[in-house]
């Protein structure tokens, strides 16, 4: 039997999700395993009550035993970067400025980020030293 995964995507993230992206899947029924899959399509009609969209995905290698309506948790790979230069998030002011060790401020371009670290795509090199901005 062939199964399709229905993943709920938040309105804030829907533009980042496209068909063909890699998916990492965990299920309540297979607690210790992570499966791989791929997004096949994104349903354009939103569920208005939950403000989410449905993205369909399929397993790369489907597990032996599956049933309809099993719970699934998934991460979708949006982008990846090898050899990324990162700095701690709290060294970045206004999401664009860093303070160098001599006190001057510099504008930088940022890439991927979360609450802990930020990728710097342009503006800094390995050897630059930064100061923590004063609150």
């Amino acid at each position: 039997m062939f199964f399709v995964l229905e993943l709920n995507i938040d309105e804030n993230d829907i533009l980042k999700v496209k068909p063909g992206q890699q998916v990492f899947i965990r299920m309540d029924s297979y607690k210790n395993e992570v499966f791989e899959g791929e997004i096949t399509s994104v349903d354009p009609i939103m569920n208005e009550r939950t403000r989410t969209f449905t993205a369909n995905a399929i397993f790369k290698t489907q597990p032996q035993v599956l049933f309809p309506n099993l719970s699934v948790e998934a991460n979708i790979l949006i982008s990846s970067q090898e050899k990324a230069l990162t700095i701690p998030r709290n060294y970045l002011l206004n999401d664009s400025l860093v303070t160098l060790s001599d006190g001057s401020k510099r504008n930088v371009q940022t890439g991927l980020m979360d609450y802990n670290i930020v990728e710097i795509t342009q503006g800094l090199t390995d050897n630059d030293q930064l100061l923590l901005p004063k609150q």
Binding site: N12, D114, Y115, N116
Partner: peptide, 18 residues
């Protein structure tokens, strides 16, 4: 503001705990 729930709440709670 159409949502009452906090966006990215699990990442926020992880960050707060550190």
């Amino acid at each position: 503001n159409t949502r009452k729930e906090i966006y990215n709440v699990n990442a926020i709670m992880d960050k707060l705990k550190t």
